[in-house]
Simulated assay, not measured.
Amino acid sequence: MNDIINSPMFGILLSIICFEVGLYVYRKTKIPLFNPLLICITLIVIILLSCNISLDSFNKGGKLISFFLGPATVVLAVPLYHKLETIKEYAVPIFLGVTVGSITAIFSIFYISKLFGLTSELTLSLIPKSITTPIGIEVSKTIGGIPAITVAAIIITGIMGAVISPIVCKTFKITDEIAIGISIGTSSHVIGTTKAIEMGETEGAMSGLAIGIAGLITSFLAPILIKLL
């Protein structure tokens, strides 16, 4: 039994099974709060704790999944190709929107952390919360954060974005497809983009575009703004 648990296949299979369970629950209920990734994480935590399985054993397979996060993100370029003319037409508003959103994310985290008296190390770990995981980890390392905390913050931010974004759009009557996509991608990266894709092809394409731009802008501006702040 120990050989199975300590095998990389254990972490991979457990992740796939738990995610499929989460996907099934979400498809049956259609409740935004029952996000497949949130259910997956909850089930994995429960199984690891109840069976007394160490995180290191699970991570032997989990690290392999993390390795493919970068290449998987590249797949989001496919819908972008179909919306190339739209991107060209609205290039300036898109770039400005993502830039303002990225800067706002950095400033908001800094001042909220200051308000609640968080340590500088924890604050730096939370600053890359709105960008995709592979880039967020590197930004966290560069500015002196703790990558593990950054990953947790990124996941929570993405799930919250996927859950809240449709409610926000409906409440404030936001109907522009480009604006919806750009705002979701900038604030809640890949996980939010899965919801944007459900909302429409244009929303999904714009959200995928925002992920890349927000990642680049944050990785460039975060070290500069932190020194200024």
Results as ranks from 00 to 15, higher is better:
30 K>M: 03
111 Y>I: 08
177 E>F: 03
92 V>M: 11
151 V>H: 06
169 C>H: 10
2 N>I: 03
126 L>P: 02
124 L>I: 07
89 E>W: 01
37 L>M: 13
188 S>G: 11
124 L>M: 12
207 S>T: 06
12 I>M: 04
66 S>L: 00
207 S>E: 07
45 V>N: 10
72 A>D: 02
210 A>H: 01
206 M>T: 10
98 V>L: 08
158 G>N: 04
75 V>S: 14
211 I>G: 02
54 S>V: 00
147 P>M: 07
35 N>G: 10
220 F>R: 06
32 P>C: 06
41 I>S: 12
135 I>M: 10
158 G>F: 01
20 E>G: 14
202 T>I: 14
211 I>C: 01
170 K>W: 05
115 L>T: 14
227 K>V: 12
121 E>L: 11
214 A>I: 03
11 G>R: 01
11 G>I: 00
119 T>N: 12
71 P>E: 02
149 I>K: 03
193 T>D: 05
4 I>W: 01
21 V>L: 11
18 C>P: 08
206 M>H: 07
215 G>Q: 01
141 K>F: 06
226 I>D: 06
100 V>I: 15
123 T>Q: 13
62 G>L: 00
25 V>A: 12
162 A>Y: 00
109 I>V: 15
206 M>P: 06
50 S>E: 08
100 V>R: 09
26 Y>L: 07
174 I>T: 12
157 T>K: 04
150 T>H: 00
183 S>T: 15
46 I>A: 14
209 L>Q: 02
34 F>W: 11
168 V>D: 04
220 F>S: 13
165 S>E: 03
